[in-house]
Design a protein around this nucleic acid. Structure first.
Lengths: 354, 354
DNA sequence: GTCTTCAACTTAACCGGTTAAGTTAAGAGG
DNA sequence: CCTCTTAACTTAACCGGTTAAGTTGAAGAC
C-alpha cells in the first residue's frame, strides 16, 4: 500500500542507505552527489513516500511523542475549564517543542486484583516504546510514579507533588491557595465559613481542605467553626449546604470556600433557585479561576493557578528530562493568587465574634 | 535498558519464537508445553518485560491507535464545554473499543507556501504508521480528507459533512438547528432577530448563518430584518451588538441567536455590565447546549447537539472502517433539538409586524 | 606504471517483535 | 525393526527504517 524506502530506492536506482541519508539531510556529509539527491527526492514525491515512524522509532529508540496520563476517567466531564486550559497548555507546548501527544485515560477497576492487573497493563502501555516520556495528572500516592522511576522512564507530575527528589513536578501551593481564600473571607468579617471539599483521593483537594482548617485555626477560631461538606464533583448533591443555611443566625455559614470552580458555580445556581442571593446572603470563593469565572453571575472570586502555564512548564521540564538535561529546579511550586471578583461581600450577619 | 524478548528467551532457555507464542496466548495452539509456558512467564515477570509496541506495530501493520486531528489551534481555548464533551466522548469510547488516542493539533501557517508544506507534513504525520485511522475535526473543504482518501487511510469526519459518498462523517443538521432557534424566537413574537455569526472557515458556523437567513426569509421577513454580526470566538469584540441596542425601538433587535454558547454567554455578561436585562430586554439563544447552560444566569436556551454521543459514534464508525467493515450508514446526520431554558421571553417591544 | 586518496556510493547488521516453515525426538502402528 | 505421526519446539525471513563498515573507480602523486 504505502510506499517503502526500498521502493523509492529501486525507482531512483540507488540503495536504501542512500535514500535514508538523503531523507535525513545527510546527503552532503555522506558525500551523496547533488544529482543523486534530486533523483531520490523525485522518486519520493512520485511515490508519495511517507517514512514509517514505527521503524524509525525502533531504530532511534525515541519517537518524539509524550504520553499524557489522566488520573480520573471523568476528567473531561467537568465544565469549569480546568481540563480545557490544561489541554491547551499541553497541545500548544507540544507544537512548540516538536512532540506529539498520546492521550491515556483510564477506567477505574473495582476489585483489588483488577487494580493490580490494570496497573501492570497501564505500565506496559507507557513502557511499550511509543512514548519517550509521560506527563502524569495523578495523585502523588499513585504507584505509577515509582514504577516509572524504577523503570528509568522520564516523567513529570502535574498538579501533584512529592518529597522524593527524584520526582519532577509542577504543582500549585494548595494550602496557600486555601489560606488566601479563607483570610480574604475573614478580612470581610466572615467567621462561619463552610468548605465544599473534594475527594481525599485527590491530593490537591486534600490540601485545600487542610489549608482551610489551618487558616481557621490560625485565626483562633474554635473547632465548631469548621464546616466541611463533601462535594466531590458537579454531580454531587449540594442539598446539605442549603439545609445548613436555614440554621439560626449565629450558626449558619455566611461564606463558602469551594475546592473547585465548577462546584462553586453549581452551588450558586442552586442558591439562586432557593432565593439565596450571592454575595448579599452568602459569599462564595472558588478555586482555579478559569475564564468562566468572569462570566458567571456574579463573577466568581476564585483562587487562581495558571493551569496553562503550569502545563507548559511541565511539558518543557519533561522535554528536558527526556533529552537528559538535569536542570536545577525540577520541583516547581507555583504560588496561587486570589482573583477578587464580585461573589463576596462584607459579613453583615449578627455573629458572635470569638 | 528495557528487557527485550531475546533476553526473556535466554533466561527461559527457549527461542524468541516460543516467547512470542506464549506472549500472545498461542501456547496451546502451537503446542508449547505448560511447563515451558510458565517458565517463560516467570522470566517475563522477573525481567519486568514489556513488549515493544513499535516492533509489534511494524509487524502487524496496525497499532490500535487512532489520531484525532483538530482543525483549529485554539480548540482548547474555548470554555463552553464543547471540547470537553468531545474529548470525553472520544476517550470513553477509546477505552471501550480498545484504542489509544494520538492527539494532533496544528498551528496555522501564514503564507501559501508554508500552508502547502504544512499540509504535506501533516499528511506524513498521519500516514507514518503510528495510527490506524483518524478522526477529523475539520472543515469539509479541507484538503486533508481527500488526501487521506487517496492514500487509502481510514478516517471519519466529525462536525463536518460532505456530499462525497466515500467520506464517512457524523454531523449535526446545523441549518435545522438554526431554524429551531429562529422559529422559537419568531413564535415568541420577535421579528428583529440578530445573529452572532462564526467564521466562514467553519462549515458549521456557515450553515447556522444560512439557516438563520433562510428561517427569516421563510417567515416572509424582508431583507432589512437580517442582522448578522461577526463574533468568531470569545475574544471577539461584542461592542457592535451593544451599539445596535441603542437604535430606535422599531429597528433595534429584541432577540439574538448566537452561533455558539460561549459567545452567547460572553454577550450576556457584557449586557449585564451595560444594564441590559436578559431576557426582559433581549432574548438570547445559543448553540450546543452544554451542561454550562444550566448554570448561567439566566440559564441559556440553546440548540442541543449531543457532542458526546456524536464523538462516540464517529469513533465507532472509524473502528468499523479500520476493521474493514462497510456499514450501511456511513454518513450520520444528527437532528438537533432546542433546549428551552430561561434566556428568552415573549417580545414586548413596539414592533412593526410585517 | 603503481600507489594513495577520496568522492560516491553499497553492504549488511541491527532495532524488537511476528510467523511460516522447518527440525527433532518420542511414541504409535504395522 | 522400521516408518509414520505428532508434540514441542527452533530457524530464519520479514516488517521499514538506521548506520558503521566496507567497496569501487577515477584522479592525483611520485
Amino acid at each position: 500500500m504505502a510506499a517503502t524506502m526500498r521502493e523509492v530506492a529501486r525507482r531512483a536506482g540507488v540503495s536504501v542507505a542512500t535514500v535514508s541519508y538523503v531523507l535525513n539531510g545527510q546527503g552532503a556529509v555522506r558525500g551523496i552527489s547533488e544529482a543523486t539527491c534530486s533523483r531520490v527526492r523525485r522518486a519520493m514525491s512520485e511515490l508519495q513516500y511517507h517514512p514509517n515512524a514505527l521503524a524509525r522509532g525502533l531504530s532511534h529508540r525515541q519517537t518524539h511523542t509524550v504520553a499524557v496520563v489522566m488520573q480520573y476517567p471523568a476528567i473531561f466531564s467537568g465544565w469549569s475549564g480546568f481540563t480545557n486550559e490544561l489541554m491547551h497548555g499541553i497541545t500548544d507546548t507540544a507544537l512548540e517543542v516538536g512532540y506529539d501527544v498520546l492521550l491515556h485515560t483510564r477506567n477505574v477497576a473495582s476489585d483489588v486484583e483488577a487494580v493490580q492487573e490494570k496497573h501492570r497493563r497501564e505500565l506496559s502501555v507507557l513502557l511499550d516504546g511509543r512514548a519517550d516520556g509521560a506527563l502524569l495528572l495523578r495523585d502523588e500516592k499513585d504507584p505509577l510514579a515509582n514504577a516509572l522511576l524504577e523503570a528509568g522512564f522520564p516523567f513529570v507530575m502535574m498538579f501533584s507533588h512529592s518529597a522524593d527528589k527524584r520526582h519532577w513536578f509542577v504543582d500549585c501551593d494548595n494550602m496557600e491557595g486555601a489560606r488566601l481564600a479563607v483570610e480574604y473571607l475573614l478580612s470581610l468579617g466572615h467567621r462561619r465559613i463552610a468548605h465544599l471539599a473534594g475527594s481525599d483521593v485527590s491530593g490537591a483537594a486534600r490540601e485545600r481542605k487542610q489549608g482551610y482548617l489551618k487558616a481557621l485555626a490560625d485565626a483562633g477560631l474554635p473547632a465548631e467553626y469548621q464546616m466541611v461538606i463533601d462535594a466531590f464533583s458537579v454531580e454531587h448533591d449540594l442539598g446539605p449546604v442549603v439545609e445548613m443555611l436555614s440554621k439560626s443566625d449565629g450558626e449558619r455559614p455566611t461564606a463558602v470556600f469551594s475546592w473547585s470552580d465548577d462546584v462553586a458555580i453549581n452551588l450558586i445556581s442552586l442558591l439562586r433557585q432557593n432565593g439565596v442571593r450571592v454575595p448579599e446572603d452568602l459569599s462564595v470563593v472558588g478555586f482555579d479561576s478559569t475564564t468562566l469565572c468572569d462570566h458567571t453571575d456574579p463573577p466568581l472570586t476564585s483562587v487562581h493557578q495558571s493551569v496553562y502555564n503550569m502545563a507548559a512548564t511541565a511539558f518543557r521540564l519533561l522535554a528536558a528530562n527526556i533529552s537528559g538535561a538535569r536542570p536545577d529546579e525540577t520541583a516547581v511550586r507555583v504560588q496561587p493568587r486570589l482573583d477578587i471578583r464580585k461573589s463576596c461581600a462584607p459579613c453583615t450577619g449578627s455573629l458572635s465574634l470569638p
